[in-house]
Amino acid sequence: MIDPTYLGQILVNGISVGCIYGLIGIGFCVIYNASGIVNFAQGAFVMLGGMTAYLLIAKTGLPLLAAGVIATLVVAVLGVALERLVVRPLWDRNATMFVMILATLAAQIVVERAMLLMVGDQPKSIAVFTDLPPIRIGGVAIGYQLLWIIGVSVVLISALNAFFQRTLVGRAMRACAIDREAAALQGINVSGMLALSFALSAGLGAIAGFLVTPTQYTAYNVGTPFAISGFIAAIVGGFGRPLGAFLGGIILGVSQALAVVTFGSGMKNVAALSVLLLFLFFRPTGLLGTAK
């Protein structure tokens, strides 16, 4: 039988990494809702968030928080650039979903390779945000970085919820998700909303990358696994449902953590894909969603 303390530790670690998957999954949802596009370059934003913060700290000596904020803004701008240079030209030509997926996957590869040329293939990391010994609750060690991840994720979810529910621009984005044509008929700049969705989504990915880098590392090629996990989180949550994606991320993170300690680290991806298959078989609409 598994020691309850050990189980608690697994749950804490799983929730923490699940929050990261959730943020990436929300990024998928934000773009999908505004445009119907599944952006497979989402992982590149995560990698760029961690890597830009690392470069800012290593090359300019910027404080951690400033580096995180600047990295998020830089990646948000890069998100808009991706939208303008890759997505928009195809969108204007009414490209199919398949073409969009291929194009964004290609963009992910281009960004990865560019980063490889710029910084090499060695992993990079940044310091933990709070350099103190972990808090111990009933034998479960909770590192401060995990608290940062969970805390920032909860704040972001609440802020996003307020943005979509209470602001006019957020409502306009929801309107675009419901009926793009009707939204345009209200004078809403639908293509502007697409650019905004990429900025938001890229910013979320960058924050996820910035948060997770101290607990793991970042490298030119970390984006794809994160993108896959975020995509699964979005499907498990009900594609297009930000809160669902967040919950889906936590389910995924905890499942992976349980699989790693029970069956070994080689089973991490098996756990992720098993969760995906279980949902596709038994609840294809996801936790909160209606499949589109």
């Binding site: 006019l168 409502r171 306009a172 209200q186 809403i188």
Partner: peptide, 9 residues
């Protein structure tokens, strides 16, 4: 409110 989007709702 979205009908009045152009005047900021």
């Amino acid at each position: 409110q979205l009908g009045a989007y152009q005047i900021g709702g």
